[in-house]
Simulated scan of single mutants.
Amino acid sequence: MTPRDAADDNTPGRGPGRCSDLDRPPLNAAALRRALVRDGGLWSELRVVQRTGSTNSDLVALAEGGGAAEGTVLVAEEQTAARGRLDRRWTAPPRSGLFFSVLLDPAEIPVERWGWLPLLTGVAVATGLSRAAGVDTALKWPNDLLVTVDGEERKAGGILAERAGDHGVVIGVGLNVTLRASELPVPQAGSLALAGAAGTDRDPLLRGVLRSLEQWYARWREAGGDPAASGLQETYAAGCATLGREVRAELPGDRSITGEAVAVDGDGRLVLATAQGVQEPVGAGDIVHLRPA
């Protein structure tokens, strides 16, 4: 892995100074490792870098080269080529959010159930933020994290899952934490600070999210990847802002379906009830919320 300035962010004299922005202090990599990396736990390595293009790209390359074990966490203070679904690009000011990727390798779980991993991550992030930040985070199928700002639903983050060859799945999370209104890339964006979070210190937020992810991942694996037996399917549905709404699914091949989102099925697909009385499962595509739940 060769991200630019791969030294831990709290190395004195490297990158933006600790006091250059008192509202956005750097993460404490050593303290995070002490809190999260332990014998018998999921997280095997945690590294914080000052700046890189994409933590997902770096960790996929590292895993495919045999240089990362399951439970590796790569965090960046700034990403210059961050990617979302459909290869969309986005940027955020340094230290304004949580930008990290993790390597998971549930080799004993049938591959057809791996599609639940990004949904599981959404549940874990929402649960962790509720505890650590005191803010409600809703899930927009399949990978968006929503908060409420001034009575409006705003996107505060997203999740991207990528295969790492035969070495598992890299899951990236990007979350706006202290982004100010003047820094929003689009009016529909939001942040934890704008949503009135009780705390925006990124160290406890990251600890809370990763501990929640470890717990949910363990439950899912213990259930053999069964989303119902692990409680994942029910919990995801309870926190999914897409269900109960009229939506438009924009599908590959310039095709679209409009209907009410009525369920998330056992394969993690969104089920739409159309005006023709047909229930259609959607496994991939962009979802546009057409009316409030």
Score class of each variant (00 low, 15 high):
Pro3His: 15
Asp5Glu: 14
Asp8Gly: 07
Asp9Trp: 13
Gly13Cys: 11
Leu27Gly: 04
Asn28Met: 09
Asn28Val: 08
Ala29Glu: 12
Leu36Trp: 01
Val37Lys: 00
Gly40Thr: 00
Gly40Met: 00
Gly41Phe: 01
Leu42Ala: 00
Leu59Gln: 10
Leu59Ile: 12
Val60Trp: 13
Ala61Asn: 08
Leu62Met: 13
Gly66Glu: 09
Ala68Val: 02
Gly71Ser: 07
Thr72His: 12
Val73Phe: 05
Ala76Glu: 01
Glu77Leu: 13
Glu77Asn: 15
Thr80Tyr: 15
Ala82Gly: 14
Ala82Arg: 02
Asp87Lys: 11
Arg88Ala: 09
Pro94Ile: 09
Gly97Ala: 02
Phe100Pro: 01
Leu103Trp: 00
Leu104Gln: 02
Pro106Trp: 02
Glu108His: 14
Leu120Phe: 07
Val125His: 03
Arg131Val: 09
Leu139His: 07
Lys140Tyr: 12
Trp141Thr: 06
Asn143Pro: 03
Asp144His: 02
Leu145Gly: 03
Leu146Arg: 08
Val149Asp: 03
Glu152Asn: 10
Glu153Arg: 15
Gly157His: 03
Gly158Pro: 01
Arg163Lys: 08
Arg163Val: 05
Val170Asp: 03
Gly174Ile: 02
Ala181Tyr: 05
Pro187Val: 07
Leu192Val: 11
Ala193Glu: 06
Ala193Lys: 10
Leu194Asp: 01
Ala195Met: 10
Gly199Trp: 03
Arg202Ile: 08
Leu205Ala: 01
Leu205Val: 07
Gly208Arg: 04
Gly208Thr: 03
Val209Ala: 03
Leu210Asn: 02
Leu213Val: 06
Gln215Ala: 14
Tyr217Phe: 15
Arg221Met: 13
Leu232Lys: 04
Tyr236Gly: 02
Glu250Asp: 11
Glu250Ser: 10
Leu251Thr: 05
Pro252Ala: 12
Arg255Thr: 12
Arg255Ile: 04
Ser256Arg: 12
Ser256Gln: 14
Ile257Val: 15
Ile257Ser: 11
Ile257Gln: 11
Ile257Asn: 06
Thr258Cys: 07
Ala261Val: 05
Leu272Thr: 10
Gln276Ala: 14
Val278Glu: 14
Glu280Val: 15
Val282Leu: 13
Gly283Glu: 08
Pro292Gly: 06
Pro292Arg: 02
Ala293Ile: 06
